[in-house]
Design a protein around this nucleic acid. Structure first.
Length: 273
DNA sequence: AAGAGACCCTGGATGC
DNA sequence: TGCATCCAGGGTCTCT
């Protein structure tokens, strides 16, 4: 579900509620949620630790603990987090609960069981291969031109490759391609430098706006206080199949690229450009 | 090395 | 109403 803006929005709301809190105990409600180390080792190592820092890398949330280990979590498609009073009943798809010293529970809920928790001494074990953050200056036209050179894969597929740029998912890939007027099936290596520069700008613009609007709620995504995001009101092509292009009025089309639903304007985004 | 496809899961929407 | 099928915001693994 969540892409960079949703992860950041959740983390921003969560961070002040867990900062400097000691995790007095851990309940693993579904063992598959713990990727590494073993469930027993994970629980033993996290218990009694204090959360000293929170950050985000791509779509991963990082929580540094006071023994210099890192708790890292990925929400995948349907994961979400909340901090609630301990008395609140456990919800149907709660998978992992951190009991905090202040009597509250930090709960990870994930319908589809794709989300994962990692406990590592070096964050690079998990996030080391990620590409630059889209809003960082290192994600530049020059960088992107170099990464796309010679690649025959569809440009959309490479936008979703977290090793090239970290945090872009299906929604923002489609929206950025529309803004840059690039067809999602264009061979990445065939893009002109000006098109790549426009795409970099479009990615930055879409991500920045979605951050400002607290993410996109299509179904599952909620901010930790239960409220929805706002960017769904700003979508121009994503899941708007058959509706008019906001720029030219042509009918938005849906195709499948790299196994993912893909939405674009066949007039604004030409394959033979 | 790069790219295509299977796979991991549950539940909501849609079709018959 | 009931059942089958398709679909979903992500990432990893295998095979070619």
């Amino acid at each position: 579900m969540p892409e960079l803006p949703e992860v950041q929005t959740i983390l921003d709301a969560l961070a002040p509620l867990i900062w400097e809190q000691v995790i007095v105990d851990v309940s693993v409600l579904w063992p598959g949620v713990v990727d590494r180390p073993s469930v027993d080792e994970f629980v033993a190592a996290v218990r009694g630790r204090r959360v000293v820092q929170t950050s985000r890398r791509g779509k991963y949330m990082l929580f540094q603990l006071d023994d210099a280990c890192w708790l890292i979590m990925h929400l995948r498609m349907t994961g979400n987090m909340r901090v609630v009073f301990r008395e609140e009943p456990v919800q149907p798809h709660d998978r992992l609960v951190f009991h905090l010293e202040n009597g509250r529970d930090w709960r990870f809920n994930d319908t589809r069981k794709f989300g994962r928790a990692y406990l590592v001494s070096d964050p690079d074990e998990v996030v080391g291969k990620l590409g630059p953050e889209p809003l960082d200056e290192s994600f530049s036209a020059a960088y992107f031109i170099e990464k796309l050179a010679g690649r025959r894969a569809a440009i959309k597929t490479l936008l979703l490759d977290q090793r090239i740029v970290a945090g872009v998912g299906n929604i923002y890939a489609d929206e950025a391609l529309f803004r840059a007027r690039v067809h999602p099936l264009r061979a990445a290596g065939s893009l002109q430098p000006r098109e790549i520069a426009a795409l970099v700008d479009a990615v930055k613009g879409v991500i920045a706006q979605a951050l400002d609007e607290m993410g996109t709620t299509l179904r599952d995504y909620r901010r930790p206080d239960g409220s929805v995001g706002e960017f769904q009101n700003s979508l121009q092509v994503f899941r708007r199949t058959g509706r008019p292009c906001p720029r030219c009025g042509a009918m938005i089309e849906r195709i499948v690229v790299g196994g993912r639903a893909t939405h674009f304007c066949p007039v604004e985004q030409r394959l033979d450009a």
